[in-house]
Simulated assay, not measured.
Amino acid sequence: MITLREITPDNFRAIIQLSDTLDESQKKSVAPNVVSIAQAYVNLERAWPRAIYLDEEPIGFVMMALQDDDIPEADQPAYFLWRFMIAKPYQNKGYGKQVIDILKQKAIEDGMAYWYVTCTMHDPMPYQFYITCGFEDTHEMDDDEQILKMRLK
Rank of each mutant, 00 (worst) to 15 (best):
residue 120 T to M: 13
residue 79 Y to K: 12
residue 120 T to F: 13
residue 77 P to G: 00
residue 2 I to A: 03
residue 38 A to I: 12
residue 130 Y to A: 15
residue 19 S to R: 02
residue 130 Y to I: 09
residue 107 A to S: 06
residue 73 E to T: 15
residue 39 Q to V: 09
residue 15 I to R: 00
residue 41 Y to T: 04
residue 65 A to P: 05
residue 5 R to P: 03
residue 116 Y to A: 07
residue 82 W to M: 13
residue 82 W to Y: 11
residue 62 V to N: 03
residue 59 I to G: 06
residue 31 A to Y: 04
residue 92 N to Y: 03
residue 72 P to D: 00
residue 17 Q to E: 11
residue 132 T to Q: 13
residue 96 G to R: 09
residue 91 Q to T: 04
residue 107 A to D: 02
residue 117 V to W: 06
residue 96 G to F: 12
residue 86 I to A: 14
residue 58 P to K: 05
residue 98 Q to Y: 13
residue 114 Y to P: 03
residue 113 A to H: 09
residue 87 A to G: 00
residue 81 L to E: 11
residue 141 M to N: 10
residue 80 F to L: 12
residue 140 E to W: 02
residue 140 E to F: 01
residue 53 Y to F: 15
residue 107 A to C: 00
residue 11 N to P: 04
residue 130 Y to H: 07
residue 118 T to K: 15
residue 51 A to C: 10
residue 74 A to R: 02
residue 94 G to L: 09
residue 132 T to D: 10
residue 67 Q to M: 14
residue 137 D to Q: 12
residue 8 T to K: 00
residue 86 I to E: 11
residue 150 M to N: 07
residue 136 E to C: 02
residue 137 D to Y: 00
residue 132 T to W: 13
residue 37 I to Y: 08
residue 56 E to A: 06
residue 29 S to L: 11
residue 71 I to F: 03
residue 105 Q to T: 09
residue 38 A to Q: 06
residue 6 E to R: 08
residue 89 P to V: 05
residue 23 D to L: 12
residue 61 F to E: 03
residue 45 E to C: 06
residue 129 F to M: 14
residue 35 V to P: 05
residue 78 A to D: 08
residue 26 Q to E: 14
residue 40 A to S: 11
residue 15 I to V: 08
residue 39 Q to F: 14
residue 86 I to Q: 01
residue 29 S to W: 05
residue 13 R to P: 00
residue 25 S to P: 01
residue 39 Q to I: 11
residue 142 D to M: 03
residue 46 R to C: 15
residue 126 P to L: 15
residue 74 A to W: 09
residue 149 K to T: 07
residue 136 E to L: 03
residue 88 K to N: 08
residue 26 Q to K: 09
residue 112 M to I: 03
residue 122 H to S: 13
residue 85 M to E: 06
residue 127 Y to H: 12
residue 82 W to H: 11
residue 41 Y to K: 10
residue 40 A to E: 10
residue 70 D to N: 13
residue 126 P to C: 08
residue 14 A to R: 01
residue 37 I to K: 09
residue 82 W to R: 07
residue 45 E to Q: 03
residue 46 R to D: 02
residue 130 Y to G: 14
residue 80 F to Q: 07
residue 100 I to N: 02
residue 78 A to F: 10
residue 6 E to M: 04
residue 44 L to V: 12
residue 47 A to L: 13
residue 137 D to A: 07
residue 118 T to R: 10
residue 96 G to V: 12
residue 131 I to H: 11
